[in-house]
Nucleic acid binder design. Sequence first.
DNA 1: CGTTATATTGAAGTGCGTCAAAAAGTGTGG
DNA 2: CCACACTTTTTGACGCACTTCAATATAACG
Lengths: 239, 239
Amino acid sequence: MIDRLFLKLRVRDLLSAEEEAVLRETIVELAEVPAKKTVLCRGEPLHRSILLIDGLMCRYKDLRNGRRQISALHVPGDFLDLHGFTLKHLDHDVMSLSPCRIAYAEHSRLVRLTEEFPHLTRLLWFTTNLDAAIHREWELSLGQRTGVARAAHLFCELYQRLRIVGLVQGQSYAFPLNQSELGECLGMTPVHTNRVLRELRERRLATFKGGLVVIEDLRGLEALAEFDAAYLYLDSTPR
Amino acid sequence: MIDRLFLKLRVRDLLSAEEEAVLRETIVELAEVPAKKTVLCRGEPLHRSILLIDGLMCRYKDLRNGRRQISALHVPGDFLDLHGFTLKHLDHDVMSLSPCRIAYAEHSRLVRLTEEFPHLTRLLWFTTNLDAAIHREWELSLGQRTGVARAAHLFCELYQRLRIVGLVQGQSYAFPLNQSELGECLGMTPVHTNRVLRELRERRLATFKGGLVVIEDLRGLEALAEFDAAYLYLDSTPR
DNA sequence: CGTTATATTGAAGTGCGTCAAAAAGTGTGG
DNA sequence: CCACACTTTTTGACGCACTTCAATATAACG
């Protein structure tokens, strides 16, 4: 059930059998969430954190003119709001993009974890810092990359993130959102998103259709995006 | 010396005398850094983290066309690279914008801190999650806000962040960077930054000149920016 | 089969970038 | 104190990336 979390962690560090057991005891109570459902609202007090088991979720913020920025995408094995463990409430909303399965970790149990398992604590701390590293790369995209490069970069990032949890088949992966929502990740309108996708298609780099991304030319896509996976910390290092 | 860190932490939580003492023992060895000096390079192995005592620093990433995105600004009391404690190397560079004073915390000592002081560990974890919350708000700015609103929002954010560490005098604060560097924070060219600043000046909201920000109409600035300080977590909550 | 969401394309408008030059500020040495 | 070099700010003209508005096409669905 939480095996994708272990895959994600073991790409980055050693995880002992005891630590694995502790996580299995901490993360419990499976639940299902339909697509397009807000699972967490900004400001509400939190007493547990959520691990994504299956499906795709996002965090987002809105402006009053109705424009929305998706600030993060989450794939299976990611915590949606582990940062909420120390923040106590969120500064953003969280919603499902596809039907999802989730599991819960009570904050009271996480407190005990920080008291008894310092290495595991640092590893969980690491995962929130990894989220922040992805935020920084998105800031670079939103601030400086062109529309096509932004889209190309996102496709490269998800290729790597999904690959390590076993969710890439050949050169394609499920990416269940529509062009409007993709535009909300990329800081552009649905119309322009459509044009950007057409350019990637015509340049034979990647296609996005019906919630499926097909990478036709990974090297070309990475070159266009100036993608360097270093910010995903895919190296195994003691934390 | 590290009192601004205590101001920052005590806005958010109780900090015991013992914890304060632990931090004083952990953060040592004062150093000076001239302006415009790169203090940390992406990729290099880290064995300590840096606390900013005085001055202004930034983290940034470059693209090959020479465009740069500043992904975070740091004010006195902030760690520059506490995330580096769990990441082990950085995905970005860090440089000083003004002459700075810094102090060091050895990672070996931080490891011991995580083993012996779980609440303090959670508080330090919190500060890295606060950095991430600021990243998210910048993503919203870069993706969805107009140029003027982005600038206005940044001025509001720094007003609050500097205020809690005692670095706002009346309605103004030191913000020692030039228009090019400000543009690198805001995802815009120096030329456009200049025009945006003129608009804020002409609308009598704020002025930025000679490294000094003067807020003329805080409410107006906040309204233009849709600024809501909630993402800065200025409330005292047990972590 | 009709209804609704999603994708696609066109045309026109705008915010921001680019290029270029001038003006103002800053520091240095004489 | 001025002369000079250099950086930073400011402004103008023009171009492009992206938005907006609108219409049509296609797919999804009960």
